[in-house]
Amino acid sequence: MVAEKNLAVSLCGLTMKNPVVPASGTFGFGIELADAMDLNTLGGISLKGTTREPRYGNPTPRIAECTAGMINSVGLQNPGIEALVADKAPALRSIYGGVIIANISGYSVEEYAFNCARADGCPAIDLLEVNVSCPNVHGGGMAFGTDPKSAAAVTAAVKAVTRKPVFIKLSPNVTDIVTIARACEDAGADGITLVNTFLGMRIDIRKRKPVIANTMGGFSGPAIFPVALRMVYQVAQACSIPVMGCGGVRRAEDVVEMMMAGATAVQVGAENLRNPMACPEIIAALPALMDSLGIDSLQEIIGII
């Protein structure tokens, strides 16, 4: 029997019972998995990325397997912001007591602000995660996250319309992640989520064409863990706002490693797609791992490197 361990972390004034959060796009709106597990074991849930209008997303195939990971090109399929605030988030709230994170996308600064204003009025939502890093939509998404001025403009616009904590979710497809994270912090962001997926590609050598219908997509999975960890470390060193670490996390050891690099909360993405029970399994494994590492409280190890 492992002695009582404290898994709780504090994030922008919100108490999370543990730092583990299914990443946006890998867990639907949470309710899809309510029958398969006890959602209330999860520290938080980041909901599927939402735009102002409903979107079908990209043509199929949207999925390509890789060594130690996968490429997705879902392209922000979602029912639109009104469905999120009127239906999806309240439905999850009715069965889930942890931190509900709305993931907000857009095609313009105005759309980001509009969507965040709508989400601000939804009591079911605790925190906004603004996605300026989707590699799968043209004319939006990642374009805002690869330029410090644009990222700052989105940050300032959404901060002006909400009192909920705002995290900006950054793309790793940049030369200098720190410059962009600092620009977001300077514009008022309450935290940074990083990283989104890496732009990737596979070719079917028999058919002589890309596996993904949209040619390219976002690469994620255990293969990106060291790169994501490095970026979490760099941003945590350079900024004073909290970081949610994301990228290739698949086990309790990875959660501890991300937190030591500076993450206050840790998101699990692609692993959910191969193992829908990944998050509860990771949470269940944390106390024994903490015991073997001499850790009593996870809050203590944040950014110790």
Binding site: G28, Y56, L273
Partner: peptide, 16 residues
Amino acid sequence: ERMGCGAGFCYGCSIL
């Protein structure tokens, strides 16, 4: 269809 999660939450195999 080529699937991701196979269980309805990743939206990798959506068709119109």
